[in-house]
């Protein structure tokens, strides 16, 4: 309850801060809209050359695409701004002021800044998602849809965990740039159906760096056939990654040397 009250304060401060920089607020909304247009355009053009992609028709692929736009919008709204600043806190020793507060440091540094502009984009992404669902030819029940939404939320949390795993090495490397850039280029792995990956690449993207699980696995579970193995894989890897992230975080804090990092 204390954490919920604290989060409501974060929301209030974030909205008032966003309204102070109005031009920036609108620039960010336009930027995310461009991201959506480019991604939808990419697949629309791709389907001019092929009727199916990794076993999915165009309407199924559009649900998949709109789902990763939704995950991206959720991430940008809740976590992204906070993730951006963490390497700087570590590098400059600013993390000190978060460590001494009487709340979980991980909670504080992950959720402090709520991106109000991205909240607007979240609504746009949601509209694209609903429109893609409306055009989906594959029949589905309300239960299946709710299950899919649950898996998408799991994908959103997995996305956060993976980004943290890429940021935490800053405790040892002093610069977060390389790993951060690497994480963003891995974003492409989220944006492709996992069935296109084979061999070692598939093994890497579904187990070691499980970016393919964020949206593609939920979409496969939704379009069917939903096998228990696929769902167990999703749950096991997500829990494993959470455990790894928490372990790395504790190790990182032990290696943290304050202002001289």
């Amino acid at each position: 309850m204390r954490y919920l009250r604290l989060y409501l304060h974060f929301l209030r401060f974030s909205f008032s801060r966003a309204m102070e920089f109005r031009l920036d607020f609108f620039f960010k909304i336009i930027m995310d809209c461009m991201f959506y247009v480019v991604n939808l355009g990419f697949y629309k053009i791709l389907f001019l050359t092929t009727p199916m992609l990794a076993g999915w028709s165009e309407d199924q692929t559009m649900v998949f695409v709109s789902s990763y736009l939704l995950v991206d919008a959720l991430h940008m709204t809740v976590f992204a701004s906070n993730m951006w600043w963490l390497p700087y806190y570590v590098n400059r020793g600013d993390l000190d002021s978060y460590l001494i507060r009487p709340v979980s440091t991980l909670f504080f540094i992950s959720l402090r800044d709520f991106a109000a502009n991205s909240f607007v984009n979240l609504l746009i992404a949601l509209t694209i998602f609903v429109s893609a669902l409306a055009n989906l030819q594959t029949p589905y029940t309300t239960g299946q849809l709710l299950f899919y939404l649950g898996c998408i939320l799991n994908g959103w949390l997995l996305h956060y965990v993976l980004q943290m795993i890429f940021i935490i090495p800053v405790f040892w490397t002093q610069s977060g740039k390389g790993f951060n850039d690497f994480f963003f280029s891995m974003g492409m792995a989220i944006e492709r159906p996992d069935l296109v990956y084979r061999g070692v690449l598939r093994w890497v993207l579904t187990l070691i760096l499980p970016f393919a699980l964020i949206v593609s696995f939920p979409a496969r579970l939704f379009f069917g056939p939903a096998t228990p193995n696929l769902f167990l894989h999703l749950v096991a890897v997500t829990l494993g990654m959470w455990g790894l992230m928490l372990w790395l975080w504790r190790k990182g804090l032990r290696a943290y040397s304050s202002a001289s990092s």
Binding site: T173, K177, G178, F179
Partner: peptide, 8 residues
């Protein structure tokens, strides 16, 4: 930053 460079 060599690690950055190679990772990149």
């Amino acid at each position: 930053y060599r690690s950055d460079f190679w990772v990149n």
